[in-house]
Design a protein around this nucleic acid. Sequence first.
DNA 1: TCGTGCAATATTGTCAGACAATCTGATGTT
DNA 2: AACATCAGATTGTCTGACAATATTGCACGA
Lengths: 234, 234
Amino acid sequence: MSDAGDVAEHKRMRGATVDYVLRHVRDGIFQGQYAPGQRLIEADLTRELGISRGPLREALHRLAADKLLEIVPNRGAIVRRLSMREMLELFSIRIALECLAVREATAKLAAPVIRARFESDTEAIWMPEQRAPGRGYIAENKSFHDAIIRASGNETLGIVTSQLQLPLLMFQFNKMLTAGNIAASLAEHRAIAEAMLDGDAADAETCMRSHLERARQVASEMPSQVFRSEARAR
Amino acid sequence: MSDAGDVAEHKRMRGATVDYVLRHVRDGIFQGQYAPGQRLIEADLTRELGISRGPLREALHRLAADKLLEIVPNRGAIVRRLSMREMLELFSIRIALECLAVREATAKLAAPVIRARFESDTEAIWMPEQRAPGRGYIAENKSFHDAIIRASGNETLGIVTSQLQLPLLMFQFNKMLTAGNIAASLAEHRAIAEAMLDGDAADAETCMRSHLERARQVASEMPSQVFRSEARAR
DNA sequence: TCGTGCAATATTGTCAGACAATCTGATGTT
DNA sequence: AACATCAGATTGTCTGACAATATTGCACGA
């Protein structure tokens, strides 16, 4: 589409070519332009993006490290598709880490500076339904969970969780976001925040766990065709 | 050292060059050949290893993704050094994930097949001191923790934890392994395994947590010069 | 008709050489 | 001493090339 315009853009700054490809392919995957299972041919991409193979390969391999692509020797890169099992495993891990974050964050909230920042970061969840459904909610959800991790002060945890979230984005989650789901999720966010501000770490952790377990439940009800078949297709 | 011999070796198989570099640099870091903070000059490495810049850069960037190197734009790769704070954060995360593993694994041990494999995987911890001190223990420790994750059946968890362990290996931990530490660790392993085989998930998790917290304690007593100073040196 | 083996094509993995952008350190000027 | 300038070092990227491997289409025989 707007590729022709983008081609020139990355030329301006040196060292940005790889990043440019990274973003292009990642966005292409999330927006469904590159479908799961599709092969990404190096020659095509170099032509489309107006770059050479070196930076392109580097970008593809980094995306493979993030589990967005799968690279088969001598066959190149294909867009990865998660099996339902892998998605459930990712959720287990995410639950464990977000519970850790909520515990550490609740303790840190005793400090006024951290508390003030957390309150301003989570302002949005207290405002009544002023937001557009669907697309807007995803950003709000992300910023709430990010605020907790930020308050925990554990930077490494932030890096790890952000990497875990990426593959989950590959399912177009917004399709699942009914008004009911959004309302329930928002209520749970509020419960979590209240428990945290009360200093009740155990309660906050419980709320977080059930919040994520419900999200997992919703995710597991997605049509089975969005998942990769479990049988090792290698 | 034996580089000259290795140079030819990777030529045999196509598609193994990047892997070859990966292993070389990783081992060089763990064995102290490449010291933390040291710059890795592309020209030097291509000459030493007899490869071209393409695969080399790919390998360096992958190691950067694993947090073993840091890549500064237009300055290249330097061997990363963790701050004490980052090490503690890594331990927090590892504790959360290994507790998750122990819970899931204990549940799975009800199945005879899983149970049998777990028992054979952890055979070593029941045998009295037939092992060499130091070096041998690290492998034994790793295989015990791996056995738990394997029994949990959560493959994604295995991938994530193995990536988390890598940076920790950068400290030469073996220097810290006194006979007393090894004995204590072994006893804790046995306690964990017993609780798991008894089906007592809560107890197993408690044992695992205190086991790792003690390890963290030992690690935090390492001489401060092995850590990077916390001030952002950028 | 259906599989099987083989040649032609497509694609990747790697190499070599080149160039400009950028960083580093030393030199000279004020 | 502070600052500007310059040469060398190093990286980021490009181009073109070649062999190794995978894929495809097709002729051939059972």
